[in-house]
Design a binder for these strands. Sequence first.
DNA 1: CTCGTATGTCTAGCGGTGCTAGGATCGAAT
DNA 2: ATTCGATCCTAGCACCGCTAGACATACGAG
Lengths: 200, 200
Amino acid sequence: MSVQERKERERAGRERLILATARELAEQQGWDAVTTRRLAERIEYSQPVLYSHFRGKREIIGAVALEGAAEMAAALRAAASASSSAAASATDGPRARVTSLARAYLGFAERNPAVYDAMFQLDGGLAFATEDTPEPLKDAFAALLERLGEVAGDGVNPALFTEVFWAALHGLATLTRAGRLPPGDAERRVELLVDRLAMI
Amino acid sequence: MSVQERKERERAGRERLILATARELAEQQGWDAVTTRRLAERIEYSQPVLYSHFRGKREIIGAVALEGAAEMAAALRAAASASSSAAASATDGPRARVTSLARAYLGFAERNPAVYDAMFQLDGGLAFATEDTPEPLKDAFAALLERLGEVAGDGVNPALFTEVFWAALHGLATLTRAGRLPPGDAERRVELLVDRLAMI
DNA sequence: CTCGTATGTCTAGCGGTGCTAGGATCGAAT
DNA sequence: ATTCGATCCTAGCACCGCTAGACATACGAG
């Protein structure tokens, strides 16, 4: 029995190694550089080993995306609670919480571009907006919804409002990183977005 | 002289054929299906011919993107003027113009997903937000700016406002098409976006 | 302790990709 | 008619994702 357990531990460890290596390589040189050959070489195994853990490259991307979704959800919740636990939480109120939520979202995308790509730009074979959407993805959306629901405004479906707000953040994140928007005015764009969308 | 002119005409015609074929193939089966071999076969030439017109696949994508930018600019201007030339233009005013502008943008993205990808999702080697940005791209942004400037609100830089509005539209377009947003509520999201962002 | 077996890993290779070197061919100009 | 230059194609490079089948290793049974 103990032998089998040890093997399972080793196997799980190797799977974490694969994902961590893929992620690191993607962040360093982009997902195009994450080839099965390079990945195999870095983990010091041959290519077929990858296929005993994942069906293929797409599934590796999907696994990294799920990791990232969990981290993003945590980052969003941390940002929201941090801004409310600070000195004067009652006065700055929901306005400051939404702003720091938006900054946290864009900050995550900026600090983890490859992970963000895995989540939203690449095909990781994940289901979205359906009942069999993986839990971490639903939870990341829920983290947004928790803070944005209170500023949706009267008579506006909180989920619908969150979708629009999220889309705007996603647009800012992707266009900024692709060099489609002048990089200097990022902060002003965030403030404008929050001022207009959020009903304080 | 006439011989040379004929050859140049033939060459220009073949270049249009390449782009039209690439675009058609991309719209039918996605850009992944646009390989140099398939493209060459469809235009009934060998692969190297492609490289006498374009540096590589990236440049073909970029050329399609420029075509698309010109079309999008025209579509946006048409939508804006159509809504104002309709019956009661003075009463519905800028609000209706902005809504139809947004619908036109999202409609273009939905009807020409491959072209939209070439413009904003893929690497076509084009410069953005710099002085040497190709004219069609600047013009498409200008088409947005023309209509959105009047609803930016007091003291808000029209260009900055246009960037934010554009980012929101871009987010809606990409997330919707990737199945990341429930497809049914598209129209309600547009209305919410326009209601909140545009200062009527 | 030895021996089959079963698990795990690797080597080698498939069909595909973007891209290019070098030779053949064809048409224009002399 | 012949040369010469532009034009195009065949063939091939290195790389991609992925897989079949050989091999070795480590296990459990006797």
